[in-house]
Computed example of a mutant assay.
Amino acid sequence: MRDWGRLPGDAIEDLRRLEWEHTGRLRERLLGRRPFPIPCLLKPPTGNQALEDLDHFHGYIAAWRKWPWPHQVTWVTKRFRQLGQFEVPVRLEIESTQALIAALGDEAVERSRGWAERMEPLLSLDKALFTTLINRLEELDRLSMTDIHLLASVLPQLQRGMGRRRYLRALPLQKVDTKFVELNQSLITALLDVIHGQEVSVHGGLEAWLECRVTPSNWLHVKPLCPEVKGRLAGLDLVRLCFEQLTTYSLPASNVLVIENLQAGYGLPELPDTIAVFGGGANTAWLQAEWLKDRRVGYWGDIDTWGLKFLADARLRQPHVEAVMMDLKTLLTHVERGVDEDRLAGLPAYGLTPAERSLFDELRFGRHGVGRLEQERLSQDYVEQGLAEWIQASAAV
């Protein structure tokens, strides 16, 4: 590769890579936090280099003489042995954002026009939004002009307390759909913070500032496992409850069986005075619920490092949680159905019994030829027997 005599195309490619496509640097240029000019060294040749490739030497000089903005190019007089004296370009300086865009060509010009077009309706609301809009150029690029007009329409409508304990999706907006607000909540929050002096963030975010009800999240399935518990649950076979409801609503059974995976929950047999909560995966936070302290709680998950980690997490919330079918016996009974575990969890510092810690190590080091046994791979008769034994142990206490 020739390391001298950089051509206009080389300089433009560097400007594109180092300035235009470097989001942080571009943002600083646009906000005036990174000063102009942008220097580009053109690496004029030594005498020997010029002699070795005269075509490139003359082409390099000719190319920069055709540069559309001559004032940006610094030339110096150099005397080359055997070639004589030449004016050679040594440095290109881009003096402004407009000059950078012009040098980069049509694509950059079009993109900058798009920014101007998108910003205009928003800046008409408040000129102070400029800095925030520049800081969120990627989001601005993704919005259509229809979305921009929706954004300009919704910002003046959103006022502190207007939610009146409704969900965000039920806001009383004019000519704006509430899904748009939900999908663009981060950008809307940033812009409203400028308009309202950081009020939105101080209040804990958009929904809190609007005084909306918290949108339910972290849904789990709840299934009564006997007719009596089903009757206490209004006769429902299966319901979905969110994190907030599970932490406050006391489920109507003495035994609570927590199942890691969704499909395993559908295969549960009838169990007396028992209700199952399943499909939460890593979500064990709901187990902090106070009402669980006086219930018998069983946990059944995959026999792998992550399943044992989730078991430990559950015990950090409720120390009396009992593991169900998460032992060496279960693993060895079904070992031919095991697989490798691609990504291992770290050994929890707390929450596992000595036997469970030993099992964790055996899985981690593949001592039985497998690292993972999914709970769905257990034989159904084994599952039913294991759950029956758990219930019988409860009755014996």
Results as ranks from 00 to 15, higher is better:
Gln392Pro: 00
Leu332Met: 06
Trp286Arg: 02
Gly161His: 04
Leu210Tyr: 06
Gln174Cys: 12
Trp64Leu: 04
Glu207Leu: 11
Glu211Val: 14
Thr330Lys: 09
Ser124Cys: 04
Glu21Lys: 15
Ala50Pro: 00
Glu107Gln: 13
Val229Gly: 10
Met162Val: 12
Pro45His: 06
Arg343Trp: 07
Glu21Arg: 15
Thr97Gln: 09
Trp300Thr: 01
Gly265Val: 07
Asp340Cys: 12
Ala393Lys: 00
Arg142Glu: 05
Pro35Lys: 12
Thr74Asn: 10
Ala393Glu: 00
Leu373Gly: 06
Gln380Glu: 11
Arg25Cys: 12
Ala170His: 15
Thr46Asn: 02
Glu260Ile: 04
Ile391Thr: 09
Ile195Tyr: 09
Pro227Arg: 08
His368Cys: 12
Met326Ala: 05
Val88Met: 02
Lys78Asp: 02
Val109Arg: 15
Leu155Val: 06
Ala128Tyr: 08
Leu251Thr: 06
Arg33Asn: 14
Trp75Ala: 12
Arg343Glu: 13
Arg296Tyr: 01
His56Asn: 05
His196Asp: 14
Gly307Trp: 11
Ser112Leu: 03
Leu359His: 10
Phe36Arg: 07
Ala128Asn: 15
Thr77Asn: 11
Leu104Met: 06
Leu15Cys: 14
Arg34His: 07
Gln318Ala: 01
Asn135Lys: 14
Arg337Tyr: 14
Gly338Pro: 05
Ala11Lys: 15
Trp300Phe: 06
Pro45Trp: 09
Asp237His: 13
Gly369Leu: 07
Gly366Phe: 07
Pro269Tyr: 03
Arg136Phe: 02
Ala99Tyr: 03
Gly5Gln: 05
Glu117Lys: 07
Gln375Ala: 14
Glu374Cys: 07
Ala103Gly: 03
Glu384Met: 15
Glu139Met: 02
Glu95Trp: 11
Glu374Thr: 06
Asn283Arg: 03
Gln263Ile: 05
Pro224Met: 06
Arg111Phe: 02
Trp291Asn: 06
Leu378Cys: 06
Leu268Asp: 00
Leu210Gly: 05
Pro70Glu: 10
Val88Trp: 10
His196Asn: 15
Leu100His: 14
Leu158Ile: 10
Gly105Pro: 09
Arg113Phe: 01
His149Asn: 13
Pro8Ile: 05
Gln85Gly: 00
